[in-house]
Design a protein around this nucleic acid. Structure first.
Lengths: 235, 235
DNA sequence: CAAAAATCAGCAGCCAGCCAGACAGAAGTT
DNA sequence: AACTTCTGTCTGGCTGGCTGCTGATTTTTG
């Protein structure tokens, strides 16, 4: 499976070092040989389970959903990646050819950069600072994922939902007139798939929170009036 | 908070490159200036929330439990790390001094190597292959953590427990006369804290699985007779 | 641009699964 | 031997999953 590649001639590896002066992973990855800048529309697939894992991705703008699909047709969300997340790291693992096992879908319109795992390895060997930056990027991923585990071990669904909303505020929140708006178009179903619940339950709990005056939902975008007050609503 | 340091004079950074010939992260980290080899007894704390995050750890032998403790006294497990896991990566993040927010405890007798984050950074800059190896180590961590998220999004506790047992088989399983034994002394309480359930429920479900002839428990060590058969027991 | 199709939100009733709390006996520790 | 920790079981009660239905909203398509 592949996706539309909107751009990108490869450049000489020498320029990598120049890019480091810029200091961001973006500029660096952008200079790798074989790299490309890709635009993906909301809902489009980036990779499918079973695809060969050979590229590493850096999400520049938008959100990507990593999910697992079961034979039953059920689908669960493993991660909602935010801007500047590295993904597809499976391909960095030792030589043996491996396949994706997650489904990666653009959750919003997405702008991302990708490069073959081999060039990434080369770039790291050429200039260690690249490795250091990627290491920091991945460390962030680990911390984010662990926060999500915390969210998921809450026993009652209400706490779980609240905890998840706070995670979303952190990762996708933008200031609003009153409070913080989660800049994603989230259906109740999508939330359910991320926190291991059902659509009906999420509808009910969000309704409760709305009646309590904790949040507002307008065209699938959730605005939390006061995250601190919300966080006190844990069990 | 600190822990007993059993060994370790620091060495000249020059030897790092030699160690890379050996090829393992262990030998490399072992050569970093300020590194130490530590032995920690089962149940002893490695770091506490609030401790300054300044070292990176590589778990050589045994298991480490990362957990979060709430004011309520409740405790949840964020990760059960297995051999060759990197942890304490928070300290690698950008300069600003940060503190641990997890509680790290030796879940078994543990043998681990640690080094100051600064020396790790230096080593990476000195030889990029170090960065590459650490990157692979962290990639593994990400994948492991994501598997755990999958486990936790199962709606019924039975599936969740089964999924968790399979994860433990993968990470801590050793072949037994019949089946695979999870080489950890797990109390029902510990399992409950890892999958967001309660002790009583775990007791009941494990009892069911035992009655079905799926597993055996002997002095807190669980033996799964047939992991494949068990995996079919999902909802 | 309007009609058709698909997806989404909200509501209700039923019932299983799981939690809370309590207690007794077993196993393991000092 | 005293003590702690762990396992097993029970009762009652409530949460949250499941099913089915309706109207609203969004997207697709002719």
């Amino acid at each position: 499976m592949s996706f539309p590649q909107t751009t990108s001639p490869s450049r000489a590896p020498g320029t990598v070092t120049d890019a480091i002066a810029g200091g961001t992973l973006t500029t660096i990855v952008r200079c790798l040989s074989g790299s490309s800048l890709d635009l993906v529309e909301r809902g489009k697939t980036i990779f499918l389970p079973g695809d060969p894992a050979e590229r590493v991705y850096l999400l520049r703008r938008g959100a990507v959903r990593l999910s697992r699909v079961y034979e039953s047709g059920e689908e669960i969300t493993v991660a909602l990646l935010r801007e500047n997340s590295l993904f597809g790291v499976l391909s960095l693992l030792t030589g043996h050819r491996s396949d994706r096992f997650y489904h990666a879908v653009a959750f919003t319109r997405v702008e991302m950069i990708s490069a073959p795992a081999a060039s990434v390895r080369q770039a790291i060997e050429a200039d260690a600072r690249v490795g250091l930056m990627m290491l920091q990027g991945l460390s962030c991923r680990v911390l984010q994922t662990e926060t999500m585990i915390e969210t998921l071990t809450h026993r009652d669904m209400s706490s779980r939902l609240v905890s998840f909303l706070l995670v979303l505020c952190r990762d996708f929140g933008v200031p609003a007139e009153q409070g913080i708006t989660i800049d994603l178009r989230l259906s109740h179903q999508a939330i359910a798939e991320a926190i291991g619940s059902t659509r009906v339950t999420i509808t009910r709990l969000l309704g409760d929170l709305r009646n309590e005056g904790m949040l507002r939902i307008d065209r699938k975008k959730i605005t939390i009036f006061d995250p601190v007050a919300l966080s006190r609503r844990f069990s």
